[in-house]
Design a protein around this nucleic acid. Structure first.
Lengths: 153, 153
DNA sequence: TATAGAATTGACGTAAACGTAAATGAGCGG
DNA sequence: CCGCTCATTTACGTTTACGTCAATTCTATA
């Protein structure tokens, strides 16, 4: 039942390329390659974002899976939820023009961009307020002669 | 033992300002005044951030509680956790110089400021990447809509 | 073949800040 | 005295992205 016959398996941890052009990778390598944990990969699978083949119960990731993982990580980096990423990836059709997928991605991207800009504005705001109150606190520490000071809003 | 005598309490829902100088406020007014929900106020109390008086089971908020709530909301705005806010407020001593409180606040503020700046950098990064991939997607959409031949326009 | 090291599934935990539901009570107008 | 509304308490649910065991099987190598 195994794709790799016991006698053929020569290398120890790195059993690279039983057949030419396949490049099947197990979960440990996959994790190291992309800087995620095993748990994360299983989690993504559980959420329907990845679909590695199985050799028995062992997950084997193809380059398709690697491409998907790259997309997932990019999506996460720019702040998409896994749900969004899945929704966009589920629209992928290797035999079509993928216009719908691209449109959806663009639409979500525009909204996400807006969110990010809003967030940045909030953070800038917070930085200002925090800096201001820090100045106040510093002042209060300097003027320890006058006890009571009120907090302005 | 009630601060507001039963005879004084006239209006049903809106019992505004019965006596001068006291300004005891119930949870509903408090919530409206500061734009939070009833649940939030009870939650803060549960976490030890607020300690309103009780008239029976009814919460009555003094201006001290209002000052504390203002601080909480400011803290949240600049990104402190409720735990941090509590820790800082718990150090408040009306009869002391509060040097320790101020030092702690300043310390936490510096760290929070660093976090905020790091966050802003991440967001800027995300915005760049997102913008880039949006350009790519737009290009792909253009190429799909123009059948093969034409290139520049 | 024994055994160490991978990998598997499943269940439970975490953080933050509440939301929501259920059951109960208390006061007031009519 | 009935119902209405507001309030309270308690407990469980939500969201997101995993972390952390635990028990167990699988695999590879000496």
């Amino acid at each position: 039942m195994k794709l790799i016959s016991p006698g053929q398996a020569a290398a120890n941890t790195n059993d690279m390329s039983s057949e030419a052009g396949e490049e099947l990778v197990r979960i440990g390598e996959m994790a190291k390659k992309y800087g995620v944990t095993l748990r994360t990969l299983r989690f993504y699978e559980d959420k329907g974002l990845l679909n590695p083949q199985r050799d028995g119960s062992t997950r084997l990731y193809t380059r398709r899976d690697r491409a998907r993982l790259k997309l997932i990580l990019l999506g996460r980096k720019v702040g998409f939820s896994l749900r969004d990423v899945k929704q966009m990836m589920d629209l992928y059709d290797p035999n079509g023009s993928n216009t719908k997928q691209l449109r959806l991605a663009l639409d979500k991207s525009e909204k996400q961009l807006a969110r990010l800009q809003k967030q940045r504005a909030l953070i800038d705001d917070a930085i200002s307020e925090l800096s201001a109150s820090m100045s106040t606190v510093r002042q209060m520490l300097i003027e320890r002669s006058t006890p009571q000071a009120s907090v302005a809003s």
